[in-house]
C-alpha cells in the first residue's frame, strides 16, 4: 500500500464535506488508508487545521475509542476477542497459538510490519467463538491449524483462502 500523502488525507476530509461532526468517520478512514493502522500526529494536525477543530479534541477522540492508535501498528491488526463467550470457549488458547505462530506477545508488532497481535472486547460474532477480528472481517471457530492457515492467507494476500473462516452474520 502506498504511503498516505497529504492529497489523500485532504480527499478523505473532502469526502465527508469537511464536516467536524464526521470526525470519527474521517479518522477511521485516515487510519485505514495509513496502511499501518494508525493516525499520525501530522495527519491529526492537518485534520485539525482543515476542519477547524482543536487538536486536543482530535487526540481526545483518538485516545477514547479503542479502535484508534496514534502509533504505527501492523498492516493487519489481529484482535482476539476476550469477552465472556469467547474467553470460555478457547480464546486464551487461540492467543497462545497466535503468539507462537507470529513469534509475538500481545501488543507487539512483527518486524516486517505485517501483524500486530492484540485483544478486543466483544465483536458481536459470539456464535462462532472463539473469534478474531482482522481489519473489517471477523473469523471464527479457529483451532491451531486453521489459525495458522488464516495467518498464511493474510501473508499471501489470498482472500479466497480465508473466506471459509469468516463468521456468518
Amino acid at each position: 500500500m502506498p504511503e498516505l500523502d497529504e492529497k489523500k488525507v485532504l480527499s478523505i476530509l473532502e469526502s465527508y464535506g469537511k464536516d467536524p461532526q464526521q470526525l470519527i468517520n474521517v479518522l477511521l478512514d485516515i487510519q485505514e488508508a495509513s496502511g499501518r493502522n494508525f493516525v499520525s500526529s501530522s495527519w491529526s494536525k492537518l485534520t485539525s487545521k482543515v476542519l477547524k477543530v482543536p487538536l486536543t479534541r482530535i487526540y481526545e477522540i483518538l485516545t477514547f475509542y479503542s479502535m484508534f492508535s496514534t502509533t504505527p501498528r501492523g498492516r493487519y491488526v489481529v484482535e482476539v476477542c476476550q469477552s465472556g463467550p469467547c474467553r470460555f470457549t478457547g480464546s486464551e488458547e487461540l492467543v497462545s497459538w497466535l503468539e507462537e505462530a507470529l513469534k509475538l506477545k500481545v501488543g507487539e508488532t512483527s518486524e516486517d510490519g505485517l501483524f500486530t497481535l492484540s485483544r478486543t472486547s466483544c465483536v458481536g460474532a459470539c456464535s462462532s467463538s472463539p473469534t478474531v477480528k482482522i481489519g473489517d472481517e471477523v473469523f471464527g471457530g479457529l483451532l491451531r491449524d486453521s489459525a495458522l492457515e488464516l495467518l498464511k492467507s493474510f501473508r499471501d494476500d489470498n482472500r479466497a483462502a480465508r473466506e471459509k473462516f469468516l463468521c456468518p452474520s
Partner: peptide, 12 residues
C-alpha cells in the same frame, strides 16, 4: 451500538 458481550442480534 450493540456492544453487550454475547449479543449479536442487531447485526442480523
Amino acid at each position: 451500538d450493540e456492544g453487550e458481550p454475547g449479543t449479536f442480534k442487531d447485526k442480523l
